[in-house]
Write a protein that binds this DNA or RNA. Structure first.
Lengths: 207, 207
DNA sequence: ACTTTCAGTGTACGCATGTTCACTGATGGA
DNA sequence: TCCATCAGTGAACATGCGTACACTGAAAGT
């Protein structure tokens, strides 16, 4: 027999249902074009109940941004903990990328989609988080051979190149039909080739 | 005294007004979230007249994709004609990029925004056009030193890196507030640094 | 045991939407 | 000159929207 949930627990549960409903509906139509009523319906709740959790759709969007970047940070932390990554940044990080993206498809899809097109508030939040993420990755990169002597501007440039590559490949993984390990391998391979090319540039870089 | 326009001319004029209205409204809200009635209103025409030119908003979107990529092709042709580009691909092409994007702000904004988020039809059309564009640029790149001996796959990778970099920088130019030559210069500089890094990689690339 | 709090309900409203239909009147071919 | 064509009109419709408001009833505080 399950115990009756406390009021707080129940509220949290509904909030979660709303977030998931929005994420789910965004998949097909984009967050900006789904309505408050659609979200409420999918969450199994009456439209007005929505307001007990969020003031507006915009606020819901910001909450989704926050939640999505939480999983992005998990990735960078995982990459940092992995001893392979420092030895072999390219192969290891490309694999971490594809794996984490596959596990969190919806979150990455949301970020990739709304980055350029969401409401102004959502778009700005994503840009800010992405900048933050680039800075965090730069700290990791700064410990690599060749890069440890660079100016911080240069390291950030490298980090930016990697992250943009990552976002692009994540878009592809997200759009990839399920159960196509061949496509997945191809994406991993292409990402690796590109990162290898960039790293080759690092070795000759000056100023 | 101006001559009365022919029926065809007048129709073409209205069609153009609808396209421009849609492009203009997309700027703030994204194409996917503007309504047929808004477009008609902005074009100075009654909603039902819209149907004389397009069957649906989706078809309007596809027409905008086509028109936008027409200006993109202008850019590549201009770059091909410019003798500086072959000698000094990086500086010259970065400048061509920023200039052309500034001249065609709205078209680039449209492509960048709807690439990841438009309706399925619009999204797919843009992806297809972008692939085509990468292939065309690859033909130009194949004539560069170091690259002339590469496999066509490798040249396409290089082309893809440049184009993605271009799309990203175009997004920034578009979002840039008007009359900020300092920001513009910074973007040009960053784009150049990144392209230079990639080209450095080219010189050491094998297989 | 009582009262308060508050997550979720149900109704009602005014508004913008996409699409239909019958129409008008200038253009342009006969 | 007459008449067909057809780009653009204007009214009407059903529908879905965001939000206001008064409400209910169980959980939590006393």
């Amino acid at each position: 027999m399950s115990v009756a949930p406390s009021r707080q627990e129940q509220k949290e549960r509904t909030r979660e249902a709303i977030l998931n409903a929005a994420l789910d509906l965004s998949r097909d139509h984009g967050f900006a074009q789904i309505s408050l009523r659609q979200v409420a319906r999918q969450a199994g709740v009456v439209p007005t109940a929505f307001y007990r959790h969020f003031d507006s759709m915009d606020e819901l969007g910001l909450a989704l941004v926050e939640r999505s970047f939480l999983t992005l940070r998990t990735m960078i932390r995982e990459a940092q903990g992995d001893p392979d990554v420092l030895d072999n940044i390219i192969e290891a990080s490309a694999e971490v990328l594809v794996r984490v993206v596959k596990q969190n498809r919806m979150h990455f899809a949301f970020v990739a989609r709304e980055r350029a097109s969401g409401s102004a508030a959502v778009r700005e939040a994503i840009q800010r988080e992405l900048e933050l993420f680039i800075s965090e990755l730069a700290v990791v990169l700064a410990r690599l051979p060749h890069l440890d002597r660079w100016s911080s501007d240069d390291v950030k440039m490298a980090s930016g190149l990697f992250v943009r590559n990552m976002v692009y490949r994540a878009e592809q993984v997200v759009q990839m039909p399920e159960g196509r390990p061949d496509r997945e391998e191809e994406i991993t391979r292409k990402a690796q080739r590109e990162m290898r090319l960039i790293v080759l540039g690092f070795e000759k870089w000056e100023s």
